[in-house]
Simulated scan of single mutants.
Amino acid sequence: MAGIFEIAEAGEKAYFFKLTAPDGTVVAVSPLFNTIKAAAAGITAVRENAATGLVVDKSRPRKNAPAGREATRPGSTRTSPRLAPR
């Protein structure tokens, strides 16, 4: 079963959506939108871009990091080979 996008109200004139996994875990929450139509467009954008999006690792290297992490400078950007699409 796929995840579920839910649109909800946040106050009188604001809307957001959340993506929930089949087990009920909230995977993502959107920013606020002024209309339901804009929230639905946000869902469409996530659907179109999520499957092809690159994963960029902006975390800072830790002491005793696994091989390959020690060469990364703090603040640098790199695509994680473990998470890159195949």
Rank of each mutant, 00 (worst) to 15 (best):
M1H: 01
A2I: 07
G3N: 09
G3I: 06
G3P: 09
E6P: 09
I7N: 02
I7Y: 05
I7F: 00
I7T: 14
A8Y: 07
E9K: 11
E9P: 14
A10T: 10
A10L: 06
G11V: 05
E12C: 07
K13V: 10
A14K: 03
Y15W: 08
F16D: 06
K18W: 09
L19Y: 04
T20W: 04
T20A: 03
T20I: 12
T20L: 07
A21S: 08
G24P: 03
T25S: 05
T25K: 11
T25F: 09
V26E: 14
A28G: 09
A28L: 12
V29C: 13
L32P: 00
L32H: 07
L32K: 10
F33R: 04
N34L: 15
N34C: 12
N34T: 15
T35C: 02
I36W: 05
I36D: 04
K37R: 15
K37M: 07
K37A: 08
A38Q: 15
A38I: 12
A40D: 14
A41C: 05
A41H: 12
G42R: 13
G42E: 08
I43F: 02
T44L: 14
A45K: 11
A45H: 06
A45L: 02
V46K: 15
V46M: 08
E48S: 10
N49F: 13
N49A: 08
N49I: 11
A51T: 04
T52F: 00
T52P: 10
T52S: 04
T52E: 10
G53Q: 03
L54W: 05
L54R: 07
V55E: 15
V55F: 03
V56L: 03
D57Q: 00
K58H: 15
K58L: 13
R60A: 10
R60F: 07
R60Q: 08
N64M: 02
A65I: 11
A65N: 02
P66H: 13
P66K: 13
P66W: 15
P66L: 13
A67N: 14
A67Q: 11
A67W: 04
G68Q: 02
R69K: 08
R69T: 13
R69A: 13
R69E: 14
R69V: 03
R69I: 04
E70F: 06
A71E: 05
A71P: 01
T72H: 11
R73Y: 09
S76M: 02
S76Q: 05
T77Y: 14
R78P: 03
T79L: 08
R82T: 00
R82H: 03
L83Q: 12
A84L: 04
A84E: 06
P85W: 08
R86Y: 14
